[in-house]
Design a protein around this nucleic acid. Structure first.
Lengths: 134, 134
DNA sequence: CCGAATCCAAATCGATACTG
DNA sequence: CAGTATCGATTTGGATTCGG
């Protein structure tokens, strides 16, 4: 998708996403991001150290946690605090923008929890129908 | 992740996601899903045919649209209506569950639009700082 | 303890070609 | 028109290793 030296008028049907959400969703919508943010949402003062997050989000590898946190830091969602102690300590905290993101996330995860049973049932019905037509 | 034969029960801190959201997010949070749903949100009666969706969500390949729609159908988010005409016609429509998902999506995309400038700025600052320390 | 870097297997996606 | 099938390129992610 070339940036298009767009004049402006694409009068007819506007493309669903102008591009901004498109790109953000690719990064923010991935498997681990929401889980990491949910973990920080529960943490006291929205702050936790690396190993605490890793422990809280089970199944995440060190690599993915590092990558996820770095991306979030780059986007201004979390801030990184390094304490040059022995042993070293690194804490991550939600920024004000990060905190403002909590509401959308909460709305979304609530919807999921509420609709999860219906989705499981739908999957069962779909798969049953599919195996009949085989 | 093998169940770990380690003696220590780490059952104290509940894992952020019991697993349900975890799995749903992997599929529902991907790049195309939100865009397809946003497209259907705008469509009259929340209903559109395959080619209309493909046209509305620019950049999506036929393959990805098929996969996305099938996943949404399987989860009960959209329903598929096949008309055995010549030429064939297939329409997809949001189910009531699909419609209920529109609000969470709207909340999320609104947040993105609102915070996009701040995120761009944060990225600029981060990258500038990173290039200094090189 | 934190996390960067390398290696490598596996999943994803886009383009193309083909079917009813 | 609305898919399905296949293939190659790219991306992703886990395991491991090393360094501060």
């Amino acid at each position: 998708m070339p940036p298009t030296a767009n004049g402006q008028s694409q009068a007819d049907v506007e493309p669903v996403a102008s591009c901004a959400p498109h790109d953000v969703l690719t990064h923010l919508g991935d498997k681990w991001t929401i889980l990491v943010l949910s973990m920080l949402a529960q943490a006291p003062d929205n702050r936790a150290r690396f190993s605490e997050i890793k422990h809280g989000v089970r199944g995440i590898s060190q690599r993915m946690l590092t990558l996820t946190l770095r991306m979030l830091e780059r986007n201004g969602i979390v801030s990184r605090h390094y304490f040059p102690e022995v042993p070293p300590r690194v804490e991550y905290q939600l920024t004000s923008m990060g905190k403002s993101m909590l509401h959308p996330i909460e709305v979304f995860t609530s919807w999921i929890k509420e609709n999860w049973p219906a989705m499981e049932q739908a999957r069962g019905a779909y798969d049953a129908a599919a195996s009949v037509s085989s």
